[in-house]
Design a protein around this nucleic acid. Sequence first.
DNA 1: CGTCTATTTGAATGTACTCAAAAGCGGTGG
DNA 2: CCACCGCTTTTGAGTACATTCAAATAGACG
Lengths: 197, 197
Amino acid sequence: MNLELLFENFSKHIQLTEAEKAIVAALAVERKVKKGQFLVHVGAICRSTHFVTKGAIYSYFTDLAGDSHIVQFAVEDWWISEMKSFFMQVPARFNVQALEDSTIIEFPFETLERLYAQVPKIERYFRIITINGFITFQDRIVQNMSMTVEERYLAFHQKYSKLELRFPQKMIAEYLGVSAEFLSKVKKRLAEKEMGK
Amino acid sequence: MNLELLFENFSKHIQLTEAEKAIVAALAVERKVKKGQFLVHVGAICRSTHFVTKGAIYSYFTDLAGDSHIVQFAVEDWWISEMKSFFMQVPARFNVQALEDSTIIEFPFETLERLYAQVPKIERYFRIITINGFITFQDRIVQNMSMTVEERYLAFHQKYSKLELRFPQKMIAEYLGVSAEFLSKVKKRLAEKEMGK
DNA sequence: CGTCTATTTGAATGTACTCAAAAGCGGTGG
DNA sequence: CCACCGCTTTTGAGTACATTCAAATAGACG
């Protein structure tokens, strides 16, 4: 099991001793998932939180009209789970699914609680990355309220160019909250503007 | 200074000893603000996080077109601040302003960091309430992506009836991401439906 | 290769917005 | 305590941004 990426990520926010790293290593579970496989199903309880070391994962839900909406993307070095389901141990509202064959490191709910007790710095780490997630969703609200689809797409394109190369355009549309057809038109319009220069 | 409400809120997630409460009490700062007064200005750095013990506060921003958008409401027993500005100590993107004469308990940034070291349970508390905030913003994204204005208003009405009584309808519209005029029409339509029953 | 899904394109439609004006309401001062 | 002023809310007409539906094209996967 390769925990390098995870420890590197930890080190951005906290400094772990070798002894503490050993405790984490003893509790971490590596798992490989095939393309299309689900990590979490709507209605089930999300038992673990997932750190991606290889591949690409996304979470989404389907509304009453049958339309899908992407909640979150995750590639290498990102965490993903159904937060509400995981932390409150209630039925999941979103699916979490693999876009590609992927490798993840998992921490089951009870394990994480024990880890907080044994290594309080880990609790600090999760407080900090939760703040980052909070800010990300807040930004998304801000953008949805104050920007046109074109502006939102451009912001996404600049901030997440890596994701745009990996996830199909349809999913980008489902993330931005716009129909796939309209996103296609917006991109065309932008390309024409670019030509005109 | 009345810390009852704050300690009661703490007790929902962590159990503090009397000694620990004393440490918190020694660091907490009470502040009274008049209606209309700002706790945070756009462009300034948000130095404290605020717990409301009396009154009503809201955070908002004004976009390039001059339209206002509400980011968060807060009344008694709620926390409010400009999260990104506070935790990263960068210029604020939102204003935080008092709707009514209010009383708040403040924790400056450095104080909170010291408090985490002295009372690790406090770090746990803030991890948990940040998760709750994360989930709230995630829910808002989900609703904005999959529900009509009418449905979003009804969800708000049911979940936050307390807020609806206190904040002007215009601000509810700015929170839901809808024009004040259209929200008025939606409410009229709903009232007519209600009559027709 | 052949099939299935994603993307593109166009036409018609709709939900929500903008602009404008009237009505309602609350706060403030005389 | 009433009257006035300013802001909020309502209402209507016209408009726009984005959607839906439909069909053609392109691309990916087995």
